[in-house]
Design a protein around this nucleic acid. Structure first.
Lengths: 197, 197
DNA sequence: CGAGTGACAGATATTGAAATCTGTCACTCG
DNA sequence: CGAGTGACAGATTTCAATATCTGTCACTCG
């Protein structure tokens, strides 16, 4: 981040710089003063755009989660393909995305894990959104006769819960295990089998 | 714990006192000196029986896990009953036991959660033992024709992983939610359905 | 002997004073 | 005006000194 630039100070620019500062200093060391310094403004200016440090960090978290949700939405709403195979693709995309984020840059992943933990409200909304995506896939399968579910939202939630080990960041350490992929496949196929008509 | 008694200083007595001290002071404050004081001996004596504080805490952890495993083993090896219903009973017993421990004495539960985290070796053995119990139930079902599984140990592991939300202490906070029981039932029935012949 | 002791060295944790950070606000200046 | 400032009070974090704990060992004493 170049020290300054006479560009207008927008929320967008502040968020991007906050991400950068979090990346460099980590979640415990990154301060509002650091963000302001990186932007070449006083920290008071940052408070013109965000009411608190917590709100700033929450906005960064939201941004990150939105990116993931959009990616998965594309799979969920893709035309064609059977519901079971779409379900499998969706679960695999979720797992692979997380696994790569955790594996490629563990420090950044740890940083975001801290932010997720302190913004459970934003995370809950994100999880609700993901379960809703799953529910749409399952509903499609029920309509097509390839899946069976009495309570579609309940089934979606159950699928999400049952695969928690492969998307909950608390298990990130396990994702490095060489047996994690067969384990993922075993759970996925068990769950899909349980949902088949 | 009465200050002293001229009883012989056995590993068993040290372990019981360590549990008591952990219960009262919590995992961060409980020291070997505290344990010795509660036993009315010098801390050097404790080191005659356990090579280190870590070993002492590990032994306490092992003791606790063994108790749980024995309880579940009774269900797994009970004669009679179909494999699917035994599987359900086993999963429910595991969940209820954990849920009650967490709900009835949250501080003690938190203490043990800390000990579990620092003794992953002991925990891994315990988990292997539990998965083996599941595998025995599933094998019984396959033999009786009520369940289907190509790879029985793999399926047991998958069942265990899929129900993680209902036994992994990291999720203990969720166990207080009023919706946790239907969620448990949804996952359990999905998994058992996936295993049915 | 051999279970138990207690003084000791090095490691770890606690504490309180100093430094830094968060959030506010009266002010500047284009 | 209204985006940006910087000095300030109170909260939080850091750091170094102090205290406590862990683990060892030469010793006691039944």
């Amino acid at each position: 981040m170049p020290p300054a630039a006479a560009e207008p100070l927008t929320p967008e620019r502040i968020l991007a710089t906050t991400e950068e500062v979090l990346r460099r200093f980590g979640p415990t060391k990154a301060t509002v003063v650091d963000v302001a310094r990186a932007l070449g403004v006083s920290h008071g200016s940052v408070y013109r755009h965000f009411p608190s440090k917590a709100a700033l960090r929450e906005a960064v978290t939201e941004r990150w989660l939105t990116k993931s949700a959009v990616l998965l939405e594309e799979i969920a709403s893709a035309p064609g393909g059977s519901a079971p195979s779409k379900l499998e693709a969706w679960l695999e995309a979720l797992f692979e995305a997380k696994r790569h984020k955790a594996g490629d840059d563990p420090e950044l992943f740890a940083t975001y894990t801290v932010l997720l933990a302190e913004n459970s409200g934003v995370v809950d909304e994100h999880l609700t959104e993901l379960v809703a995506q799953l529910a749409r896939i399952i509903a499609e399968g029920v309509a097509a006769g390839s899946l069976a579910a009495g309570d579609v939202p309940g089934a979606a939630r159950a699928v999400f819960d049952a695969t928690g080990r492969f998307h909950d960041p608390q298990y990130a350490a396990d994702w490095l295990s060489p047996t994690i992929i067969p384990e993922f496949e075993a759970v996925t196929s068990l769950v899909i089998r349980g949902l088949r008509a």
